[in-house]
């Protein structure tokens, strides 16, 4: 009798499991088709000579050796690293500042939140074009503002010394998404903790530094990791501003542009796959390194 019951339960369990698999099947299929297969294919192709039109030919590690000797790869890597090292912390700081402002109980705060998020849904191409107008050297709004305080505005995208900085300024256009995530994190912080700190005599700066910031660290971690991944993948803005050669003088040649031109401009899919694999591994390593430090600075729970 018990055996029959156990058998029935196992059968029911299998059916439940099958039903569960069926429910997640579409996602699993999409994961396999649109993520795992491309990753596997790119890994394989990175060891081949491939131009889409002809079958791939095994090339061993030639593509990786070529990358090592390719000045453009190092230039793009330097540019992307510079961009990531500056745009991510600046973006985090700006989005946190905006979130703190949007967290204040002021009239029309819903409208303000919508306004700050709106740029995040504007197509990147349109946003970049708007910034090109704003950053026009002689009569653009940005330089006009700079000149109004008695300074000379830079030539931005016309000057190799300033073009990357221009892209970093442009990246702030998309801080709305991170701002909303910070805002959600801020609203999770119990008021009782902040009130307790106030009663203990903490100033607003001390409350921010000792209470708010530590409790926000999981959100900072999330935004940091996502920000780094996105910063290494900047493409639209760099391509519009500098084209496939990263004008002026290679200063805006970002790593994703390099991959794009290798694949779709020069039809070296194998080489582009190798470049993509290296980017994947670098991002993986950076992310792992960040997660390795979380014990020291991320405070889980309240």
């Amino acid at each position: 009798m018990n055996r029959l019951r156990r058998s029935g339960a196992r059968s029911l369990g299998r059916r439940e499991a099958l039903a569960g698999f069926l429910f997640v099947a579409p996602w699993l299929v999409a994961l396999a088709v649109f993520h795992l297969y491309p990753i596997g294919a790119a890994t394989y192709l990175s060891f081949t000579e491939y131009d889409v039109l002809n079958p791939p030919e095994w090339a061993g590690v030639d593509n990786y050796v070529d990358m090592w000797n390719d000045d453009a790869v190092w230039l793009a890597a330097r540019n992307s690293l510079f961009y990531a090292l500056l745009s991510v912390p600046i973006g985090l700081a700006v989005s946190l500042m905006l979130a703190l402002l949007l967290n204040r109980p002021v009239r029309g705060v819903g409208i303000h939140r919508t306004l700050f998020y709106m740029p995040a849904v504007v197509p990147p191409v349109a946003g970049t074009i708007v910034f090109l107008l704003l950053m026009e050297p002689r009569s653009g709004l940005l330089n006009t503002a700079i000149e109004s305080v008695g300074l000379d505005g830079p030539a931005w995208f016309h000057d190799p010394r300033w073009a990357k900085w221009g892209l970093i300024v442009l990246s702030l256009w998309g801080v709305g998404a991170a701002t909303l995530i910070f805002l959600a994190g801020l609203q999770e912080i119990p008021q009782s903790l902040l009130e307790a700190a106030s009663i203990d005599g903490a100033s607003s700066w001390q409350r921010f530094l000792r209470v708010t910031l530590p409790l926000l660290t999981p959100v900072i971690l999330f935004n940091l990791v996502i920000g780094i991944i996105y910063s290494f993948q900047v493409f639209d803005a760099a391509m519009i501003v500098g084209g496939p050669t990263g004008e002026p003088n290679g200063s805006t040649l970002m790593y994703m542009v390099l991959i794009y031109r290798s694949a779709f401009r020069y039809f070296n899919m194998g080489y582009a796959s190798a470049q993509a694999m290296v980017l994947f591994l670098v991002i993986l390593a950076v992310t792992a390194a960040i997660f390795g430090t979380t014990r020291r600075w991320v405070h889980e729970g309240i």
């Binding site: 026009e136 050297p137 002689r138 016309h158």
Partner: peptide, 15 residues
């Protein structure tokens, strides 16, 4: 940076 002297006679990227 001075103006649109290299846009080939079209409105350039900076508008």
């Amino acid at each position: 940076a001075s103006g649109n002297f290299t846009g080939g006679g079209y409105v350039d990227d900076n508008g």
